[in-house]
């Protein structure tokens, strides 16, 4: 899905501020930059909720076999489309598979695709960025134009084309998302790092005669890393939505794989008749995305508290 990516585009360039509902207390004096950011983050209630949601997601993914009540692939054609019950908490699908176990296992695809694709995108962005920086003018221009080209493809359209070439599956989804998000990722990484470098307090620290290493470790690093983390949190959320959208369109992971987009897509035929089929996976994906958005918001606000 391009929505979140889009939000980042102009957002970063024009400093898109957001209000958070938590309360901000002035940071105590004489505390490190790290501590200050952490303190502001933890004081933001939504951010903490987000953090809990994200941790829960990771935990669910890791412990899926322990949490699931059934084999997510086991079919029971004698008990299809059963409403939620004591045995099947979220009901069963058109092939009699346990929906609860499929929702639980679905977290694994979300985590793997979300993290791996953004990691890859950052890697491509960083390598190309480094190349551009190292070789300078011509290479820089060429790379920037290539980035423009990839930037001009709406994420989903680009990803579908790549998947067509590579076939359906988890790896193609990860690669296709990475290929069509690195341009966005690299632009934003670049601008967020640049903006920190130019900030007043860095200039001030320099003027006060602080050593370069001290400036980097105590001032630039914490802020840059927090900015990047904030951005990555958003991007992972975006990637998870994009992955589910691909499956929803029937070009993501294989249909037998327990995955939220797949589940919602196959529930379409039963719209209004068996609504529980799409509701549970929807709740799972919404909580996941909100988790990442809250964390991203929290980190950004922690960096830039003046706009709350």
């Amino acid at each position: 899905m391009t929505e979140l990516a889009k939000s980042q585009g102009p957002g970063a360039a024009t400093a898109e501020p957001a209000a958070a509902t938590g309360t901000a207390e002035p940071a105590p004096a004489r505390i490190t930059q790290w501590g200050e950011i952490r303190h502001r983050f933890m004081a933001n209630r939504l951010a903490v909720v987000g953090l809990v949601l994200v941790l829960l997601l990771f935990l669910t993914a890791a412990l899926a076999p322990l949490i699931a009540t059934h084999d997510p692939y086991a079919q029971d054609l004698g008990n299809t489309l059963a409403s939620p019950s004591g045995d099947h908490w979220f009901g069963t699908d058109a092939l009699g598979r346990d929906q609860f176990s499929r929702v639980i296992y679905g977290s694994r695809i979300a985590v793997v695709v979300g993290l791996a694709s953004i990691f890859l995108a950052c890697l491509i962005g960083l390598v190309l960025g480094a190349l551009a920086g190292y070789f300078g003018k011509t290479v820089d221009t060429v790379i920037m134009r290539i980035a423009d080209i990839f930037f001009a493809f709406p994420l989903l359209i680009g990803a579908i084309v790549i998947i067509l070439v590579m076939g359906r599956g988890v790896m193609p989804v990860i690669l296709s998302l990475a290929i069509f998000s690195w341009a966005t990722v690299s632009r934003l990484l670049r601008s967020s790092i640049l903006s920190v470098r130019e900030m007043d307090y860095v200039t001030a620290a320099k003027a006060l005669g602080a050593s370069t290493s001290r400036i980097i470790i105590r001032h630039i690093m914490p802020n840059s890393i927090a900015a990047v983390m904030s951005f990555i949190a958003f991007s992972v959320g975006t990637a998870i939505v994009a992955e589910a959208s691909l499956s929803y369109l029937g070009v993501g992971v294989s249909p037998e794989v327990p995955e939220w987009g797949n589940m919602i897509s196959s529930a379409r035929d039963f719209m209004g008749v068996k609504d529980f089929l799409w509701m549970y996976p929807s709740v799972a994906i919404v909580l996941t995305v909100l988790g990442f958005v809250f964390v991203g918001d929290g980190l950004r606000d922690a960096l830039d508290p003046k706009l709350r």
């Binding site: 957001a18 719209m271 799409w278 929807s282 994906i285 919404v286 995305v289």
Partner: peptide
């Protein structure tokens, strides 16, 4: 407004679509 806008960003369009349709 803040709460609603934050929530809106967390809802993928196919989830919103499913809710609307049903």
């Amino acid at each position: 407004v803040t709460l609603l806008t934050t929530l809106a960003i967390g809802f993928p369009s196919f989830v919103i679509g499913s809710i609307f349709q049903s």
